[in-house]
């Protein structure tokens, strides 16, 4: 599988999980909330300062249908995550090949065609 196709699969899976499957998630309190209820410290929880966010609690404010409201919040979250995290990692990454420390990247046997093409494009630039 090419790198590009694997990345596309990962993105589609993330969108489906956040946008569709999340509707079917359990609405029971999570482990910490449950323990806090049982042992008597749940009341010390305070509302977050961002509780009025339009996406608070993974629901889009102004959208009545629960399935669409939650799905939309999930999809927006996925897009924000993708942009923020990929942007961060692109800035942090090691550039060029001068200090390449991962021995596997330059090995012909396991290297993919598109990784080689990617490097070729880069050396042209």
């Amino acid at each position: 599988m090419t790198t590009r196709r694997l990345f596309a699969v990962a993105l589609v899976v993330s969108l489906l999980v956040a946008g569709v499957a999340s509707y079917y998630a359990s609405s029971h309190p999570d482990g910490l909330e449950y323990v806090a209820e049982q042992t008597g410290f749940i009341d010390s929880a305070e509302d977050s300062a961002t509780v009025d966010s339009p996406l608070a609690d993974y629901q889009t404010s102004g959208v009545d249908d629960a399935r669409i409201s939650g799905g939309l919040a999930g999809v927006i979250g996925v897009v924000v995550m993708l942009l923020l995290s990929t942007g961060l990692f692109w800035l942090v990454r090691r550039r060029g090949t001068d200090d390449d420390e991962s021995g596997i990247v330059d090995s012909g046997d396991v290297d993919s065609d598109d990784a080689r093409a990617e490097r070729a494009r880069q050396s042209e630039a």
């Binding site: 790198t3 990345f7 499957a21 609405s27 979250g77 990692f89 692109w90 990454r93």
Partner: peptide, 29 residues
């Protein structure tokens, strides 16, 4: 992370973070 990230693994890491975000929306009983 500089040592772990290059042109190929940086987008992979972005997708891993995105997938973890999505997966954390799925509470299982």
């Amino acid at each position: 992370a500089r040592r772990e990230l290059d042109d190929r693994t940086a987008p992979a890491a972005g997708l891993v973070a995105t997938f973890v975000f999505a997966a954390q929306m799925i509470n299982f009983p």
